[in-house]
Design a protein around this nucleic acid. Structure first.
Length: 464
RNA sequence: UCCAGCUUAGCUCAGUCGGUAGAGCAGGUGACUGUUAAUCACCGGGUCGCUGGUUCGAGUCCAGCAGCUGGAGCCA
């Protein structure tokens, strides 16, 4: 089999010369006799006609087998096929008699390639999430999960195309890191030949080094958080893309983030219409993701939250625990609920910038116009999907950065290499991190991030 | 870590007032020549999460524990 065969979505031909095709190429093969290879998704029968629904990873097709079209043994065999039997079906490609633009295969031959040794666990009826997650390796075969995998793939490819197209260089960051840096989140600890090592929570510091080498750098890999978070927005292992650009300021950073999200929505809408339909995604909510995104200051976001809280108080509402609704205290970070209140004001992602420095990471540059603020930005996705991007301009002054490290009580020795970036030709620079799973959840309209990654790692799940 | 909810057949669930266990799907057998989670008939299928308590009697009431789910906190 050659590469060109694969690219033309024809997987070769049988000894008798019949071409082996994939389901997504049936439209081009109407009137031809072809061979399909795949798995039986569902089977129906009307006595003298069997309807075999077959999936092959590129799509789904109904194969019709009339009693008079095949020999008796083949017809009898088709009657006893169970779900997920792998099969090779030979037949004539035809238009569906009732449905426009749908094709079916009039089967003339059937070969069973792999017979299930037992009952397939996932029946075409409803199941609970925990059961499906226990069978995640099989659940991936279902229509919805297949659609999500494809959208995820498109999102990842778009991210790479976007940065590659802008002249970025991919620079991989390490997974093992020597110290529990940044001091913020809880890390997974591991034994590294007798020393303690931690699984990375971000490649950002390394990208700052890379930016000084290549100008525009990005890394794309898994990151790990050991917090005991049990919500629909959290995973213990998730993927993040982190661009870092030399001589870019906060405004440029926001331009870059905005362009990426517009590209993602646009590409998913053009290339994954079918998948979004399977997921029943309201695509009108994605059509509005166009430039420019609103850019509001932290102060304005606080005002929006307080306006909302005052309305709730006026209606006599209380918090979930029954406590009275208080004004949002300036200086704190937003909770999930607050983010939703802000993002619900807009029909596209909103960028909230200039947060209080105290609630943000030590490496963010102070706002020259207001020392209480940091030049950071969070991008909140619409519909309550929360923060999909966090970033900002980095502190490029050696003394200020040293003071920040001391203020956060971080071990200075561990950051000597990072401080070197300010010692040898310091430069203004900025970047951000985009969480892939939250982006997939948003673009697909999924209620939980656990379905956005093939094999999720969560507080109470390490298998399969 | 805290709060709430859930745990009954392979799966999804019902189970009244405390009186000894039910349905649909899946599986099996059969009927049906255009079905779309096909339909119809019949069949097999149970450590009611675990431990203890109350009671003549517990799936049901009580306590403890475990697991799962969601939320808060924390975080992206």
């Amino acid at each position: 089999m050659s590469t060109s065969d694969l690219q033309s979505s024809s997987a070769g031909s049988t000894p008798s010369g019949v071409s082996i095709v994939t389901i997504d190429s049936l439209a081009r093969n109407v009137g031809a006799t072809v061979v399909l290879r795949g798995w039986l998704y569902n089977r129906r029968s009307s006595g003298k006609v069997h309807f075999l629904e077959v999936r092959d990873g590129t799509g789904m097709v109904q194969c019709v087998m009339g009693k008079n079209d095949v020999d008796e043994a083949t017809f009898a065999a088709a009657d006893h096929l169970s779900q997920e039997t792998s099969v090779e079906i030979t037949g004539l490609v035809k238009a569906h008699p009732k449905r426009p633009n749908v094709f079916e295969v009039a089967a003339t031959g059937l070969r069973v390639l792999g017979k299930p040794s037992g009952e397939y666990p996932i029946s075409p009826k409803e199941h609970g999430t925990d059961f499906l997650m226990d069978n995640r390796h099989l659940w991936l075969r279902s229509k919805r999960q297949h659609a999500i995998l494809r959208v995820r793939h498109t999102i990842i490819r778009t991210i790479r195309d976007y940065f590659d197209g802008l002249g970025f260089t991919l620079v991989d960051a390490p997974i093992f890191t020597p110290n529990a840096c940044e001091g913020t989140s809880t890390l997974f600890e591991t034994d590294y030949h007798g020393d303690k090592a931690y699984l990375t929570q971000s490649g950002q510091l390394y990208m700052e080094a890379a930016a000084a080498a290549v100008g525009k750098a990005y890394c794309f890999g898994p990151t790990f958080r050991a917090e005991k978070s049990k919500t629909r927005r959290h995973l213990a292992e998730f993927w993040m893309v982190e661009p870092e650009v030399a001589f870019m300021d906060l405004d440029g950073d926001m331009d870059l983030a905005e362009g990426l999200l517009v590209a993602l929505a646009d590409r998913v809408l053009t290339e994954r219409r079918e998948e979004l339909a399977i997921l029943e995604r309201d695509t009108s909510k994605l059509e509005t993701v166009k430039r420019p995104f609103p850019r509001i200051r932290y102060d304005q976001a606080v005002a929006i939250i307080n306006e909302h809280r005052r309305e709730r108080r006026a209606k006599g509402e209380t918090n979930q625990d029954g406590s009275p609704v208080e004004d949002f205290p300036w200086g704190e970070d937003f909770g999930g609920e607050d983010e939703t209140v802000v993002s619900n004001r807009y029909d596209r992602p909103v960028m909230v910038h200039r947060y209080p420095a105290e609630v943000k990471a030590f490496y963010l540059k102070r706002d020259p116009e207001d020392a209480r603020l940091a030049l950071g930005v969070d991008v909140l996705a619409p519909e309550g999907y929360g923060e999909v991007i966090g970033g900002g301009q980095r502190e490029d002054d050696l003394a200020t950065l040293e003071a920040a490290i001391e203020h956060h009580k971080l071990p200075k020795e561990a950051f000597e290499w990072y401080l070197d970036l300010r010692r040898y030709g310091s430069f203004p620079h900025a970047g951000f991190g985009l969480g892939v799973e939250r982006s997939v959840a948003w673009l697909c309209g999924l209620p939980h991030v656990r379905e956005t990654i093939p094999f999720p790692r969560m507080l109470s799940r390490l298998a399969p």
